[in-house]
């Protein structure tokens, strides 16, 4: 009951401050930006002109899988930044402003408080992400060639786990710090450190969450989901659960009013 109350309140809040409008729009733009520019680049260059007579443009042929993967590459950068900016204040902001004092003096469980907010951000962001991927899939089919629906679904699902992890990391930082800015900064820092660790030890870290996108690429090429992808997915889900309970733990140890 209380879970639904807070969830619904977050939905209304994000609707009234237009997040339900701009986040889907931005996510669609992020997803289709790269496939579209790649396709139209030669035509644009032609139209603009300025190339010396007789220049031969040798652009490598882009496969549907490569074009589709471009969306994930863009999400790993801009998508993540959008997630951190809209999620960092979820809990830190309420604590900083003081509303949390009124809410948490009512008999609300801390886990309810955290997980309902987490759930709403998950719906907002993954919903926008799904729209973006649908748009990307549409253009890839139109411009680069066929990509099976089942492959679209499986790639979108597995990359969605990575975005969910990013959301959870940001929520965790949001319970850890009272200032949304610092929560956002630390979330980005954690993501950068994770990516460095992965780059250095890639050989040993086959199931590290950061390897999701390379496993997805392989599975798209091979046309089947292999064990490594499942393994990485399980590790990612486990990490999400651990971080959620970690949030609860840090939040409990905080004094709401100080």
């Amino acid at each position: 009951m209380q879970w639904r109350t807070i969830f619904a309140k977050e939905m209304v809040e994000d609707w009234r401050n237009f997040k339900w409008v701009w986040v889907p729009l931005v996510y669609i733009i992020i997803a289709i930006m790269d496939p579209l520019t790649t396709y139209y680049l030669p035509k644009i260059l032609d139209a603009v002109g300025g190339m010396p007579e007789g220049t031969i443009m040798e652009l490598p042929e882009t496969s549907p899988v490569d074009a589709f993967m471009m969306s994930f590459t863009e999400y790993s950068m801009f998508g993540v930044i959008v997630i951190v900016t809209i999620t960092m204040g979820t809990i830190a902001g309420e604590r900083k402003s003081g509303v949390a004092e009124l809410v948490l003096v009512k008999p609300v469980g801390y886990l309810t408080y955290i997980s309902s907010k987490w759930g709403e951000k998950l719906v907002l962001i993954l919903g926008s992400y799904l729209l973006g991927m649908l748009a990307s899939w549409y253009y890839v089919n139109l411009l680069f060639g066929d990509l099976a629906f089942s492959e679209f679904i499986s790639a979108t699902f597995f990359y969605g786990l990575w975005l969910s992890l990013v959301i959870t990391i940001t929520i965790f930082c949001s319970t850890l710090f009272k200032s949304p800015g610092i929560a956002g900064f630390v979330s980005i820092a954690i993501l950068i450190v994770m990516s460095i660790i992965y780059k250095v030890f890639a050989k040993y870290l086959t199931w590290f969450p950061n390897s999701l996108s390379s496993h997805i690429r392989e599975s798209l090429y091979n046309g089947k989901v292999d064990g490594d992808l499942w393994g990485t997915a399980l590790v990612t889900i486990a990490l999400i659960v651990v971080l959620l309970y970690g949030s609860l733990f840090t939040f409990r140890s905080k004094e709401m009013a100080s």
Binding site: Q2, G98, V99, L102, K106, P107, V108
Partner: peptide, 28 residues
């Protein structure tokens, strides 16, 4: 218990009634 802090802060985007209904539901 009911508690009113010294400087109560509300969700300014809510109406007075919406806020009361919200915290009322939180109080089961």
């Amino acid at each position: 218990i009911g508690y009113l802090p010294q400087y109560p802060v509300f969700h300014n985007w809510m109406t007075g009634k919406e806020f009361l209904v919200y915290v009322g539901q939180l109080a089961t």
